[in-house]
């Protein structure tokens, strides 16, 4: 999604109050943005704590501020700066974390971001965007940039099957329709299930939904989704994020507090930072039982047998 990101930000940069800070990342991707923005594009160096506080102060001076890094470096090291300097002051700084989840797979555990949105959503005045498809990026950048809140954009890899007609961006989108169980997945992970689900007969095909914005209460859940949850025998939530603090627990809390009946729940999630062996994002998804094959087994009730 970096190419789409660069294009979207480049278009947005005609606004001369826009500034962009990078933590020394963006090689072979952000050069056009750097050329377009001149001195409003700053390489803040390998110094994420300083970068976040500088960004906060710039936003306090009414500049539109974007901060870019590899996802884990964007929120983990400078967490206190995000909390104290950005969120406590209700400053609309936009954080962009590239390679959310297992995006930097074989680079190792230091480069994985599998507790990012859980951690960030504990903060006041924070909105998370997890675009599902490359085509979402333009809209997500607009929505983040126009938001009065601080934002975190979790960039991943859009992976729709060939020939799939990507639906127009919405915080909640139904990607597959059937009469089977309900599956809700966060961000681009959702698109990895489209192909296998489309091969299932409509009578038992899951209703696949993608969520692209958190917290949940920011955007009302579609009535259709709520109805499907109420009438389904199974709800499966999949997220490339650790279980604690993740989307599933938020969803269940949200539904419970609204008095909505929750069917049997299956939760697929990023298992750990400390696998003994490493590999690509696909490999790590398999190890976490997040891959399409594991999803099918989970829906058949065979995964935990």
């Amino acid at each position: 999604m970096r190419k789409q990101l660069c294009s979207a930000l480049q278009r947005r940069s005609v606004n001369t109050s826009m500034t962009f800070l990078t933590g020394d990342l963006g090689f072979m991707a952000l050069e056009p943005l750097r050329s377009a923005m001149g001195n409003r594009f700053m390489n803040a160096g390998v110094a994420e704590q300083n970068m976040m506080s500088v960004a906060a102060a710039m936003a306090k001076q009414d500049l539109e501020v974007w901060v870019y890094s590899i996802a884990p470096f964007c929120y983990a090291r400078p967490f206190e700066q995000i909390r104290n300097d950005i969120c406590f002051h209700k400053l609309p700084v936009n954080l962009i974390g590239n390679g959310g989840g297992y995006g930097y797979g074989v680079m190792g555990p230091t480069h994985h971001a599998i507790e990012d949105y859980g951690v960030l959503l504990t903060l006041p005045n924070m909105v998370v965007f997890a675009p599902v498809f490359d085509e979402d990026v333009e809209t997500v950048i607009s929505r983040a940039g126009d938001s009065p809140s601080a934002t975190y954009v979790r960039l991943g890899k859009g992976e729709p099957p060939e020939g799939y007609a990507v639906p127009k961006y919405a915080p909640w989108r139904q990607l597959c329709i059937g009469a089977g169980p309900v599956v809700i997945a966060v961000g681009p992970l959702a698109s990895t299930y489209i192909e296998v689900f489309s091969e299932i007969p409509a009578s038992i095909r899951p209703n696949l939904w993608a969520v692209a914005e958190l917290p949940i209460e920011r955007n009302p859940m579609p009535e259709q989704l709520l109805q499907q949850i109420t009438t389904s025998h199974l709800l499966c939530v999949a997220e490339e994020h650790v279980r604690r603090g993740g989307f599933a627990s938020e969803l269940i809390l949200h539904l419970t507090m609204q008095g909505i009946h929750i069917p049997r729940l299956v939760h697929l999630y990023a298992r750990a930072h400390h696998f003994e062996r490493y590999g690509s994002q696909s490999y790590l998804r398999r190890c976490s039982l997040l891959d399409p094959k594991s999803m099918l087994l989970a829906l058949e009730g065979k995964l935990y047998a």
Binding site: S17, T19, N39, R40, M42, Q49, N50, M52, S53, V54, A55, A56, A57, M58, K60, Q61, L63, E80, Q81, N84, D85, F88, H89
Partner: peptide, 23 residues
């Protein structure tokens, strides 16, 4: 700015100074 956790203020000041320059 709310301060009290040490090590934030100089970055906030630097960010303020560079923002004024950009504006």
């Amino acid at each position: 700015f709310a301060t009290g956790s040490l090590g934030h203020g100089l970055s906030l000041a630097a960010g303020t100074a560079i923002a004024l320059r950009l504006k």
